[in-house]
């Protein structure tokens, strides 16, 4: 079994929205048709996006930290949005675990969007069908592209490499290793949806310097100066332990 997924590293995401724009660019130009965009430069811009980057401030000033949070369909392994669909337009592919909407079958009843706790689905205001991240399914298998480019558009666009893509069921894949070793976690685990996408937490690289590293514990004078030496004829610690 394969379960393709994104792993998003919140530690390096700088909130530049490159993934948002390249996602929209790729998917609005694709064979599945455009993604609506109303008043893009006007007063109330609104449109369909598969991916959005939100920003949160954690903590109280001055101890604050800004967390940029890219958000898209998580391709849940127990996708609650799929069984509720009355038409079968929403489905989860057995071969790679991608959750997709068949735009030709969707009747735009919005029921699936109610059944997604993450708000990952958006009804296209003009095409009147449900849309969501496809993991660039029209790109990742395209053999006319060089192998290094057979990745979702957002992954290729990310300047800080905050987005990893791969099979989370393969324990040795880049994404599985990242989840395992960097503390990857799932969103709202309390609902049992088992999201395939994982997030890597903010990680601080801290240096711990202990008191005794600054001050030599074996210094009998408790003072930073040359240790008094005994007479050279006496055996030193080195002499007794180096055999």
């Amino acid at each position: 079994m394969t379960q393709l997924a994104l792993v998003i590293d919140l530690n390096v995401c700088v909130g530049c929205h490159a993934c948002v724009t390249s996602c929209k660019e790729w998917n609005t130009s694709g064979p599945a048709g455009y993604m609506s965009d109303d008043n893009p430069y006007g007063k109330d811009p609104t449109g369909t996006f598969f991916n959005r980057v939100q920003t949160f401030e954690v903590g109280a000033f001055p101890m604050t930290e800004t967390v940029h949070f890219p958000k898209s369909c998580l391709h849940c392994e127990d996708a609650p949005c799929v069984p509720v669909c009355p038409t079968g337009a929403s489905h989860k592919r057995a071969e790679d675990g991608i959750v997709l909407v068949d735009y030709d079958k969707c009747i735009g009843c919005k029921y699936c969007s109610w059944a997604c706790p993450y708000g990952a689905r958006e009804l296209d205001e003009h095409q009147k069908v449900m849309k969501k991240c496809t993991l660039c399914v029209d790109r990742i298998y395209d053999e006319s592209l060089p192998e290094s480019e057979r990745k979702p558009a957002c992954v290729l666009a990310c300047p800080t490499n905050a987005r990893l893509f791969g099979d989370i069921h393969d324990p040795e894949s880049e994404v599985s290793v990242a989840i395992r070793e960097e503390g990857g976690y799932q969103l709202m685990p309390e609902w049992g949806t088992r999201p395939a996408n994982h997030y890597l937490p903010r990680r601080k690289t801290r240096m711990h310097i202990h008191e005794d590293e600054l001050q030599r514990a074996d210094n009998p004078l408790k003072k930073e100066e040359r240790l008094p030496r005994g007479p050279v004829t006496e055996p030193t610690l080195d002499d007794s332990t180096s055999w």
Partner: peptide, 28 residues
């Protein structure tokens, strides 16, 4: 059952949203 902490996976009692990823409204 859910709260902002589990929604974004950051364990802190004080989290303030600064941007929603869209300037105007969205379907959400």
């Amino acid at each position: 059952k859910s709260n902002l902490q589990t929604a974004i996976g950051v364990r802190h009692t004080r989290i303030v949203q600064k941007a929603q990823g869209a300037m105007g409204g969205s379907f959400n």
